[in-house]
Structure formats: structure tokens, C-alpha cells
């Protein structure tokens, strides 16, 4: 597959991907910093105060993008896992392994910010609402995948077993997404959708989208940094891997 004069398949080899990832990380990090900075500025200073919820609603500029990312990242991780199983490709498994902790982090962040929003608005830190429960299960799934991988010593089996579990867990993602529509519970429905015009002020939507982009960039940067560690750890026996030294792994961590 060549496109724009570049042979993209070259980068499916860990040896070629390792330096490429290293070159991309600063760009994605800078973009993440800038976008999250701008997003937070619009969210906290430009967006109008909500007439019902006051300023407490401003946590959604972190909450909603984090919740989106938690689902996106799960699907992407499962897709890499599926590609890995189907094509027997090691770098796909490495990507899946690298995405999991970031996904778990965003899931936790979504739950945390959600409960911080829930206390002033609903009057409770936690309610057993369909969306909250299914998001909690997503967190358990991330933890399950990470610990399943950690408890298998044989790398090949660890890759494939956690890939199967990741694919089985994909069932939960549509359940989370549609939970507010299927079960009419406390959590409100989506205010922003692809098909209808948003039900909120334009600046709020802007802030939310900018934050989401920023979280994407952050995810790229962190995942690439982590995949470099994974590559360096796994390929250290090979001749080229000795150059990607253990010291570098320690630094990147």
C-alpha cells in the first residue's frame, strides 16, 4: 500500500515504527496542550453561565469528552485487537496494549467528574443509573483486560487472550451509548449529536469539541509513548532493539 509516495506498510514493523512514533510524540503533545488550554479557557471564561445549574455545569467540558474518549478508545483498542487476531500482526497487539491504560484513565475521569457534577445537581455522588452502571462496567472491563495481560507470562498468549476478551466486551459500548434512550433514567440524554443541531449554546459546543480534540491528541501522544516502551521491552533481544535501550524505556516512563 503506497500513498503519497510513502510505503505505509513499512511502519507495520516495530523497528520502523519506533523512531516514527518518537518523532510524532512532540507534535501531538504540543497540540494536546494547546487545544486543552484553549478548550478550558472557552469553557471556564467565555461560555455563559447556565441559568439552572449555575457554574457547576462547567465540569461537563471535561466530563463529556472524557466519556466519549472512554468509548472511542475501547472500540479502537478492540479494533486493533481484532486486526491482530485476524492478520496475526504483532504491532496491532502492541497498540491494543498501549491504548488500554489511557482508556481506563478516561473512564475513571468520566466517572469522577460525573460524580462531582452529580452532587450539586442531583444531590448524590452516585446513583445506580443505567449509563453510570454501564460506564462502571466499562472500567471493570479495562481493568480485566489489563490484569489478564499482566497475569500471562507468554507474550503471544497474553496478546491473543486479552484481544479475545476485548472483542467480547465490545457489546457494552452500544449499551452505554444508547442507555439513556433505552432506559429512561436519571442521566440526561445527549445534547450534542451528529444528526440534529445541538441543544446548547454555540460556545459550549465549541469548548466541548475543542476539549475532545485535545483529548484525542493527548491519547495519541501517550499511546505512542507507551507503544515505544512496549516495543523497546519486547524487542530488546534483537540486534536493533539494543539501541532502543532500557535507559530510554526508563526515561519514557
Amino acid at each position: 500500500m503506497s500513498f503519497m509516495g510513502i510505503n505505509w506498510f513499512k511502519y507495520s514493523s516495530p523497528q520502523a515504527f519506533h523512531p516514527l512514533a518518537g518523532k510524532m510524540i512532540p507534535w501531538f503533545s504540543a497540540a494536546a496542550l494547546a487545544l486543552i488550554g484553549v478548550g478550558l479557557y472557552i469553557g471556564f471564561f467565555v461560555a455563559p453561565t447556565d441559568f439552572q445549574q449555575g457554574d457547576a455545569y462547567r465540569i461537563i467540558f471535561v466530563h463529556v469528552p472524557a466519556a466519549w474518549m472512554s468509548m472511542f478508545l475501547y472500540v479502537i483498542m478492540a479494533a486493533w485487537a481484532g486486526i491482530g487476531l485476524g492478520l496475526n500482526a504483532r504491532p496491532s497487539f502492541m497498540m491494543a496494549q498501549a491504548i488500554a491504560p489511557t482508556g481506563a484513565l478516561f473512564t475513571f475521569l468520566a466517572l469522577l467528574t460525573g460524580s462531582m457534577w452529580g452532587k450539586p445537581t442531583w444531590g448524590a455522588w452516585w446513583v445506580w443509573d443505567a449509563r453510570l452502571t454501564s460506564e462502571l462496567i466499562l472500567l471493570f472491563q479495562y481493568i480485566g483486560i489489563i490484569s489478564l495481560r499482566a497475569s500471562i507470562d507468554d507474550l503471544r498468549r497474553a496478546d491473543r487472550a486479552s484481544a479475545v476478551f476485548a472483542l467480547v466486551g465490545v457489546v457494552n459500548v452500544p449499551i452505554i451509548y444508547f442507555s439513556v434512550r433505552w432506559w429512561n433514567t436519571l442521566h440526561q440524554g445527549a445534547s450534542v449529536s451528529m444528526t440534529a443541531s445541538p441543544k446548547m449554546a454555540a460556545t459550549m459546543v465549541t469548548a466541548m469539541l475543542v476539549m475532545t480534540l485535545g483529548f484525542w491528541m493527548y491519547s495519541f501522544a501517550v499511546t505512542l509513548a507507551r507503544v515505544r516502551c512496549v516495543i523497546a521491552e519486547r524487542e530488546r533481544q534483537l540486534s536493533w532493539g539494543k539501541n532502543a535501550s532500557i535507559q530510554q524505556v526508563a526515561e519514557a516512563r
Binding site: I137, F140, Q141, I143, G144, S147, L148, S151, I152, A161, V164, F165, V168, G169, N172
Partner: peptide, 24 residues
């Protein structure tokens, strides 16, 4: 059965299978 098969012969598989299967 999915969880049991995934954790077959692993150390600490009893706890791990609970972690995997209970969310499902």
C-alpha cells in the same frame, strides 16, 4: 466458559476469572 477458557492454567486464575466474568 469464555472466562474459564481465557484463564486456563494461569496463576491466580480463580480471582482473575471473577474479574473478567462478573462484569459480563
Amino acid at each position: 466458559a469464555i472466562g474459564a477458557a481465557l484463564t486456563l492454567g494461569l496463576r491466580g486464575s480463580g480471582l482473575l476469572v471473577a474479574l473478567l466474568v462478573l462484569p459480563l
